[in-house]
Structure formats: C-alpha cells, structure tokens
C-alpha cells in the first residue's frame, strides 16, 4: 500500500477509533452504526490530496461532536 503520509494516516485511524468507541452507545445500536461508519470512511479511501484528507478529518470531528451531543 502506498503510504506517503503516515502521520496523516494515523490521524485518520485515531478519529476512526474515537468514533467507534462513541458508537458503542449509539441509540440505534452498534450494529447499525459500525457498517455505516465503515462505509463512510471507505468511500473516502481514494483521497490522496492532503487538503482533501484534512477536510475529511474535519468532517469526522464534526460528526463526533454530533454524536456526543446525542
């Protein structure tokens, strides 16, 4: 796997983990949450531009705050 920016990759994995942990208490159940989270991240797996990835991470942060607010 081409991995030009390990620091950025680690950041994405970190936010993925945080969201997974938050999703354990999701109202519709973790089994509902997990495939959707996975799909959302997988659909952005083609991003290579650092700016785009940053935008994705920002969106993940936003979603995190939304889940925390539930």
């Amino acid at each position: 796997m081409a991995n030009p920016n390990p620091a950025l990759r680690r950041e994405v994995i970190a936010i993925y983990k945080e969201l997974l942990n938050l999703g354990k208490a999701y109202p519709l159940g973790f089994d509902y949450f997990r495939p959707r989270l996975h799909k959302a991240f997988a659909s952005n797996s083609s991003l290579t531009n650092e700016k785009d990835i940053r935008k994705g991470i920002e969106r993940a942060e936003f979603v995190k705050k939304e889940i925390e607010a539930l």
Partner: peptide
C-alpha cells in the same frame, strides 16, 4: 479484511486482553 477492519480487530484484541496497544505497534 481492509485496513479499517484491521483497526477494529486490533481494538477487539485490546479489549480481549485488557491492554492498550499504541498506534505505532497497532499499525
């Protein structure tokens, strides 16, 4: 499994053995 699944597996392993695996090793 893709890389995201791997992250989930590593998290499950962390829970199973009640340890925390640093990101670097988890990679």
């Amino acid at each position: 499994l893709d890389s995201l699944d791997t992250v989930e597996v590593v998290m499950a392993i962390e829970e199973e053995f009640s340890i925390e695996i640093p990101d670097k090793e988890a990679d």
